[in-house]
Every structure is written in structure tokens, then in C-alpha cells.
Computed example of a mutant assay.
Amino acid sequence: MSWTDERVELLKKLWSDGLSASQIAAELGGVTRNAVIGKVHRLGLSGRAKAPAPQTAQRPKKPVAAPPPRPHRPTAPTPITIGATALKADIVPAARPQPSTQPKVYSLSDAPLINNASILQLTEQTCKWPVGDPGSDGFHFCARRSEAGIPYCGYHARMAYQPVADRRRTDRRIAGAA
């Protein structure tokens, strides 16, 4: 359907009265809401007047009160589990072994628990420090006794876990030598 002069005038009047594009499309008949919006845009009509809002009694606003304080509930420690726990009936909180700040053994004087240990022979109590070239036949792991919570014996832990200040000092020496 085409826009005749009468339909354009009716569109302008309804738009200025504050009707929505959907209401105008229904009033005109044969046009869609989007067609009305496009024609309003092409005509350059200003924003339509606000339709008068229905008069309602103003309710007094309630003061906003702070929510009541929640009682403090002590939380139980989260249980530590190892492996699949879906089928375990009772999960008992276990104390996690705390690694000491410095390992006790600082030399290789202790005999290994397993001579020439392969990766398949390592346990929680053995040092997992690799010795030699992984591509050679003589490659093995240290296998000396390690402390709880640390994967290495005291000697190798000291090599692996350097304090940050010592590491930076070593890095500066290396950078200065280059």
C-alpha cells in the first residue's frame, strides 16, 4: 500500500498525539509498525509526545533498612581426598603433611633407597631428581629418602628451591659475566 497525502497527514497527527508506531499501523491499516517508523524517520518528525500516564496515587516510599546481621557459623575444614571420591562412603578430613622450611640433609652421603631407580620404582618417600641424560642407558633417579611433601631429598631440594633473593643474585652475576 502506498502513502497518500491523507495517510501521511493522519500519520503526523497520530504521531504528535503520542501514539506508538504499532498503534498507528493498526489505525492506518495495511502497513506494518516498521513501515510507520521508516516513514516517520523519512519525514523527519520529532520525537513523539508522551502519552499521558494514568494517574495513580503515590505510595510513600519505605525507608531502606540494613539487613539483619547473620549469625556467625563456624565452617568445618574442607576434607582432603586423594583419587576418585564418588564411591567413598565417609570422607574424613586428613591432615596434609607440611613440608619443613629447609630440608634436613644437605649432602649425598646417605645411600639411595633403590640403586639406579627407574621412574616405575619411585614412591612418595624417594627423591625424584633425575641423574644423567634421559637418552642414555645410565639414566636413573636419585632415590634417596625425601621428606614429607617434598619430591626431592634434602640435597636436591636445596638446589631446586632457592630463595628468591639468592636466585636474583645469581641471575645478576650471570648477566654481568655475559
Rank of each mutant, 00 (worst) to 15 (best):
R7L: 02
N34Y: 15
K12D: 08
R168M: 03
C127M: 03
S22W: 12
W3T: 03
P60M: 11
P60Y: 04
A49F: 06
K128I: 10
S107W: 03
H41S: 06
S118C: 06
K88V: 04
G30R: 11
V64D: 11
K104Q: 15
A177H: 00
L108M: 12
A95Y: 09
H72P: 12
P151K: 02
R145I: 05
K88F: 07
I91S: 02
A65L: 11
L28I: 10
T101A: 15
C142H: 00
P151G: 09
G135F: 12
A177G: 05
I119L: 11
R33C: 15
K12A: 14
A95N: 09
T81D: 02
P52W: 01
I91H: 01
P134I: 08
C127E: 03
D133W: 03
H140G: 07
P68L: 13
S107F: 04
H156Q: 08
V92M: 10
Q58W: 14
I80P: 07
A177V: 01
M1T: 14
I82A: 12
A25D: 04
C127L: 02
C127G: 08
G138A: 12
G29C: 06
S2H: 11
I82H: 06
P151F: 01
I37E: 07
P130I: 13
K12F: 11
K61A: 13
A175V: 00
L122D: 00
L45R: 13
L11E: 00
Y161V: 07
A89E: 13
A86K: 09
L43P: 01
T85S: 06
T32V: 08
M1P: 00
D5N: 12
A89N: 08
P93M: 03
S136R: 07
L19A: 14
T170K: 13
Q121T: 15
G29H: 04
P67E: 11
A53E: 14
G38T: 11
L28P: 01
G18K: 10
K13R: 14
T170P: 01
I114S: 06
L87E: 09
S20K: 13
R145H: 14
R7H: 14
G176V: 00
H156F: 00
P134K: 05
W129D: 03
R70M: 10
M1V: 10
L14G: 02
L28N: 04
S107G: 08
V64Y: 08
L10H: 11
Q58R: 11
I150V: 15
W129E: 04
G135Q: 14
S22F: 04
A84K: 06
A65M: 05
A143I: 02
R158P: 03
R145F: 06
P60E: 07
G30K: 05
P60F: 09
R7A: 08
A76E: 12
E9A: 12
P151H: 02
I82D: 07
A26M: 10
L122T: 02
T85D: 06
L28D: 02
S146P: 07
A57M: 14
